[in-house]
Amino acid sequence: MVAVVVSLPVWLTTLALMRNQSGGPGSWILVGDPLVALGCLTVLLWRRRWPLAIALAVTVASTVSALATGAALLALCSVGTRRRAVEIGAVSLAYVAATQFANRVYPVEGSTDVLWWIQIVVPAATAGIAVSVGVAAGARRVELRSLRERAESAEREQRARAAQARALERNRIAREMHDVLAHRISLVAMQAGVLDHRDDLSADEDRVLVRSIAESSHQALEELREVLGVLRADPGRPEPPQPSLDRVPDLVADARVSGLDIRLTDAVTGNPPEGVGRTCYRIVQEALTNAAKHAPGAVVRVTLDGAVGGTFGIGVRNGPASLRHAARPPASGFGLLGLGERIALAGGELDHRPTPDGGYVLTARLPWPDSPAHSHEKSA
Score class of each variant (00 low, 15 high):
6 V>P: 04
7 S>V: 09
8 L>F: 10
8 L>C: 07
9 P>W: 15
10 V>M: 12
19 R>W: 13
20 N>R: 09
22 S>N: 02
26 G>L: 11
26 G>W: 09
30 L>R: 12
30 L>F: 02
38 L>F: 08
44 L>G: 12
44 L>M: 13
59 T>Y: 07
65 S>M: 12
67 L>H: 07
79 V>N: 08
80 G>W: 09
84 R>K: 08
85 A>V: 13
86 V>I: 10
90 A>R: 10
94 A>W: 02
98 A>N: 01
103 N>C: 10
105 V>S: 01
107 P>H: 01
112 T>C: 14
116 W>T: 15
126 T>P: 06
127 A>Q: 13
129 I>F: 14
134 G>H: 08
139 A>P: 00
141 R>Q: 07
142 V>G: 04
145 R>T: 04
154 A>P: 01
155 E>R: 13
161 R>S: 12
164 Q>R: 09
167 A>D: 08
177 M>Y: 07
178 H>F: 11
178 H>C: 00
184 R>F: 05
185 I>L: 12
205 E>Q: 14
212 S>N: 10
217 S>N: 06
225 R>K: 11
235 P>M: 05
235 P>G: 08
236 G>N: 13
244 S>I: 07
245 L>W: 01
245 L>C: 02
250 D>E: 05
251 L>N: 02
253 A>Q: 14
260 L>G: 01
261 D>W: 10
263 R>A: 14
268 V>Y: 04
268 V>D: 06
270 G>S: 15
276 V>A: 07
279 T>M: 01
281 Y>Q: 11
288 L>F: 00
291 A>T: 06
294 H>M: 02
301 R>D: 08
307 A>K: 03
310 G>T: 11
313 G>Q: 11
320 P>T: 14
327 A>N: 03
328 R>P: 00
329 P>D: 04
337 L>T: 05
339 L>H: 03
339 L>D: 02
343 I>M: 09
343 I>P: 05
345 L>P: 05
346 A>V: 12
353 R>L: 11
354 P>M: 03
359 G>P: 03
363 T>A: 10
365 R>L: 07
369 P>I: 13
373 A>D: 12
378 K>A: 15
